[in-house]
Design a protein around this nucleic acid. Structure first.
Length: 462
RNA sequence: GCCCGAUUAGCUCAGUCGGUUAGAGCGGCUGACUGUUAAUCAGUAGGUCCUUGGUUCGAGUCCAAGAUCGGGCGCCA
């Protein structure tokens, strides 16, 4: 018999028919005559209740129906007599694929702390919470491709291994095949990377942006969506050493077009989650954060605030709030400042734009005022900065000037500068941190709980 | 990297002023129960009190160092 997924049984119950389900037991309740088990196969948050007439099964089989066991059950699907579920399966045959010793299986039929589940990351996909998160993570990945595809964007694959440091800042992981115990040295005693695999120093990418720009200056609208790596010693609930980033890059977009696209995408994705994955969100809302669904709805329903940096500074200076870090034109906004703007002053997502040029990257387009660049950050409640982007500097001379001013190795950027020498075009783009989006969407307080296998300083288990 | 806090049973935690035999709930196991919903009821097992050193007649409790975890900040997405 063909196996049915539980999601499809709930969607269109074949009541009165014989069906087969396969999955993992969440719990079993035993009685003298009947036993009740709940099986979950991950296709949906919902479990299917299995009813077993104890007299039909040998004791050994019933004994092996423990929390965590993997089973295949065939039987008659019927409308449930009991309250709490519309349908249930009256078991006729039971096969135990993988028993699970209840004394040592770490996931019990009770709530566990998120901290504990991080320690059992190899088993936490079996938990209800992580099942929700993995389904939502998929939904957002799919939604991102769908959003861009429907707008005529092309998905480009930018390299994971790179010899350039995109922003001239940020610690990178080195990629090498040299013998670390005895690397070849040159005359000056430095490691001789000409003997390395790539014949030069190589790193894991911190951003696909520069490569995406190359594609945008041919295909007009493109995006990358891939893993990125930062070797920063960041110990927060918002940072990972390995994370996924979505980076669209669009020719002929100015900063305001860029902001409009970012807003449209975020609202599209959150609406998608609310419409198609309400079950999962509802569980997370009830379990972890009762404000979750209202917050998601408010983002979908009300437009984001636009606020230029200079005005943001004015608002903060006149806020009457005392901040740990003082507010001053020219300094970057601190977390506490961003939080005030989003959560207190505007009470909705805010896009801050036109930042002082000295605190932003070399590739951002200089504004006519000579002081600011066409940068923008999308700030969300609870999670803070979720997107950073800009209109790119398309003028060769201005770009080269910034590279030199910032002391970057000009020779590394010859190919990037070439795009400004041949058919340069105004263009813009941004980077969305995938896990930050998921942190916001799921209401999880820690970014380590929205990625299957988090990599952070000192932690690469699993 | 900086600043706080925590670490006691499988999990979540309590443990008073330093005192003799370290507790609870949940989970597990055993049994009872005619359809249960994180079932209920009864019983039962389960401990390197993070590690090392120190103070003390005596340390889960006080002190120091270290480890690990958590939160905040910085860097950013």
């Amino acid at each position: 018999m063909k196996r049915s997924k539980i999601k499809s049984l709930y969607a269109a119950p074949p009541v009165g028919q014989s069906v087969n389900v396969m999955g993992w037991l969440k719990t079993r309740r035993g009685g003298k005559k009947f036993s009740f088990a709940e099986v979950n196969d991950g296709s949906t948050i919902k479990n299917l209740q299995i009813v077993l007439d104890n007299s039909r099964f040998d004791e050994e089989t019933l004994k092996q129906l423990t929390t965590g066991a993997c089973v295949s059950i065939t039987g008659n699907l019927v409308e449930s007599v009991g309250q709490g579920q519309p349908i249930e399966l009256h078991a006729e045959t039971v096969t135990i694929f993988g028993p699970s010793d209840p004394e040592t299986y770490p996931l019990q039929k009770k709530a566990h702390s998120l901290e504990f589940m991080r320690e059992i990351a190899h088993l936490r996909p079996r938990s209800t919470t992580f099942g929700c998160i993995l389904r939502l993570r998929h939904a957002m990945a799919y939604g991102i491709h769908r959003f861009f595809h429907e707008k005529g964007f092309f998905y480009v694959h930018t390299p994971i291994i790179t010899a350039s440091d995109c922003e001239g800042a940020g610690e990178m992981f080195t990629v090498t095949t040299l013998d670390l115990a005895a690397p070849p040295k040159n005359k000056d005693g430095q490691v001789d990377f000409s003997a390395d695999f790539f014949g030069r120093p190589a790193h894991l990418t911190v951003s696909g942006q520069l490569n995406a720009e190359l594609a945008a200056l041919a295909l007009s609208d493109v995006y990358t969506f891939g893993p990125t790596f930062r070797a920063e010693n960041s110990n927060t609930t918002r940072h990972l050493a390995e994370f996924w980033m979505i980076e669209p890059e669009m020719a002929f977009y100015d900063l305001h077009d860029n902001m409009a696209l970012a807003e449209e995408m975020l609202r599209f994705l959150i609406r998608l989650a609310l419409e198609e994955h309400y079950d999962d969100l509802d569980f997370l809302c009830a379990t972890y954060d009762e404000e979750l669904i209202p917050r998601l709805k408010s983002v979908v329903e009300s437009p984001f605030e636009r606020c230029d940096y200079t005005r943001a500074v004015e608002i903060l200076l006149h806020s009457g709030q005392s901040f740990e870090f003082s507010v001053e034109w020219g300094a970057d906004l601190q977390s506490e400042h961003e939080r005030y703007l989003v959560e207190k002053h505007f009470q909705k997502p805010v896009i801050v734009y036109n930042y002082p040029k000295d605190i932003k990257a070399f590739y951002m387009r200089q504004n006519d005022d000579g002081k600011t660049v066409a940068a923008m950050d999308v700030l969300f409640p609870k999670v803070g900065e979720i997107i950073g982007g800009s209109q790119r500097e398309e003028r060769y001379d201005k770009l080269l000037e910034r590279i030199r001013q910032m002391g970057l190795p000009e020779e590394n950027y010859w190919w990037y500068l070439d795009t400004r020498r041949f058919g340069s075009a105004p263009h813009s783009g941004f980077g969305l941190g995938f896990e930050r989006l998921l942190t916001f969407l799921t209401g999880m307080g820690n970014i380590r709980d929205v990625i299957p296998f988090p990599r952070t300083p000192g932690n690469a288990e699993f």
